[in-house]
Amino acid sequence: MSYIDIHGHYAWGIDDGVKDLEMAKKTLSIAALEGIDTIVATPHFTSGKTTKEDQEKMIARINDLKALASTYNIKVLQGCELMLNKDSDEAIEKGIYLPFENTKYMLCEYDVTKPTQSFLNHFDDYLRSVRIKGYKPIIAHVERYFHEGIDLDYVQYLIDLGCVIQINTTSVLGLGLPVHTQNAMKLLDANMVHVIATDTHQCEGRRVPNMQKAYDTLIDKGFSKTYAELLLSGNPNHLILNEEIEYPHYKRSFFARKFKH
């Protein structure tokens, strides 16, 4: 089975992700071994800080990544991870963003260091700028914004607004904070996850290409192969083809829910 990673910082030397060309080669080699055949390169764009000049540099480096990744039989598409904040209206009006290549989808995030209440109070307002421009927001690593436990009602509110919900493989694998894994499992059990991606930043450590490992872990935790394939391959494919996603409707067995967190 092959996978599509729609969130990763593989383009080297332009944000806090992969640092240099040699690390990029190692990271792509790992991605190929993990069965990833398509990547959306999503460097950080911070509203109010990223400039037009920065944007041009990032586009050039993504093009470098496309050429490099082709030698690993991996296709790379252009995108960004847009930090939404009080400057989002101006940044989007100026065109300082990169939607997924040839699609209506845009990966968006909020500052994970801020209190959960700040996310609840402001994020949907900031999403307005994205929606007005005709894009559908993909909410990056939603499990990381809830520091004391997930608010499923608010996530459902985001879904009702037309947002796509993404969680990180690190949360599935238990490589981050315990609360992030707990949040991710509750979202998965509630069918509120649409896509799982790696959020790759490096070639070793936690934030690496690890989609096959995430798939195996989902199966081990009692999720169906159909559900896992939808989140790691099916829906990511819909996104890059500019299609509507499929909304999951699966249940784990009672035994899995009780004993395999």
Rank of each mutant, 00 (worst) to 15 (best):
V130S: 06
H194R: 00
Q212S: 10
S129A: 15
M23C: 11
K25R: 15
T226C: 03
F223K: 00
Q166A: 11
I4E: 06
L152M: 10
I150M: 12
T103H: 06
M1T: 05
T46L: 09
G13I: 09
K66C: 09
F45I: 15
P178H: 06
T169M: 01
S2V: 11
K75R: 13
K52H: 14
L127S: 04
H238F: 05
K133Q: 13
P43Y: 11
S88C: 06
I30N: 04
E81R: 01
T200L: 05
F100Q: 02
D111I: 07
E246Q: 14
N168K: 04
T51N: 07
A184C: 05
E246G: 01
T170A: 15
G35I: 00
K104T: 14
K213L: 14
L188Y: 05
C163P: 10
P248A: 03
R257V: 14
I74D: 00
N168H: 05
D189W: 07
P178M: 09
A190H: 05
I139Q: 06
H261A: 13
G205W: 03
A32F: 10
N168W: 04
L65A: 06
G222D: 08
D111P: 03
K136Y: 02
V208F: 01
M185W: 10
T226Y: 08
L68E: 10
I196Q: 00
V208G: 02
F146T: 07
V76A: 03
L218M: 13
T169F: 02
T181H: 11
K49W: 04
I138S: 01
H261G: 08
D16S: 09
T226N: 14
R252F: 13
S118K: 11
Q156Y: 09
M1H: 10
A60E: 12
I150Q: 06
L152G: 06
L232I: 01
H180K: 06
I165L: 04
S224Q: 05
S29N: 15
Q78N: 09
F45N: 11
R131P: 00
R252G: 11
I219H: 03
A11C: 13
S29H: 12
P115C: 12
A184K: 00
H122V: 01
T181W: 02
D89W: 03
F146H: 05
K114F: 10
E81M: 08
Y154N: 07
D87P: 05
N235L: 05
K213N: 10
L107S: 08
S29W: 12
K66I: 04
R252A: 08
G95S: 09
K186N: 08
I4T: 13
E109D: 09
R131T: 09
E93D: 10
Q78Y: 03
I139P: 04
Q166D: 15
Y247I: 15
F123L: 08
I4V: 14
R252C: 12
S171I: 12
T113S: 15
L152F: 09
L98I: 15
E244Y: 11
L21D: 03
